[in-house]
C-alpha cells in the first residue's frame, strides 16, 4: 500500500473528503519526520517505535573494490516493531 491508497482508505473509512484525508496523512507523517529531524524518538503503542542512532566517523571499505573510504559521522532512524503488530504480522503468515 502506498500513501495515496492509504489516503483513499482513510477518506472512505472516516467518510471525509480525499483532500482532508490527505492533509491528515501529511500532518501525521510530517510531525513524525520533524520529531526525528530534531533527534527525538517516537513511540506509538501497538505499532512501534523509532529512535535516531548517531554514528561516529569510521573507515569503511567499498565492498566491491576493497578500497578504503572514510565514512562521515551520520544519524540514522531505526524502527522497532511493537509487540502487538509483530505478533499479528507473524500470525498471518500462511
Amino acid at each position: 500500500m502506498n500513501k495515496s491508497e492509504l489516503i483513499e482508505a482513510l477518506a472512505e473509512e472516516m467518510n471525509i473528503p480525499i483532500r482532508e484525508a490527505a492533509s491528515i496523512t501529511n500532518t501525521i507523517i510530517d510531525t513524525m519526520s520533524d520529531a526525528l529531524a530534531r533527534g527525538e524518538s517516537i513511540e506509538i503503542r501497538g505499532f512501534g517505535s523509532f529512535v535516531v542512532k548517531e554514528y561516529e566517523s569510521y573507515t569503511g571499505r567499498n565492498p566491491k573494490t576493497g578500497e578504503k573510504i572514510q565514512v562521515s559521522p551520520k544519524k540514522l532512524p531505526f524502527f522497532k516493531v511493537g509487540k502487538d503488530l509483530r505478533e499479528q504480522v507473524n500470525k498471518h503468515k500462511e
Binding site: M1, K3, L6, Q88
Partner: peptide
Amino acid sequence: TFLMLSKSSLINGQDLLLS
C-alpha cells in the same frame, strides 16, 4: 484510523510505502 489502516496493510503481508 491511520494507524489501523497501516497495520492492516502489514498484517495482510503488504508492504507500506509512505513516500
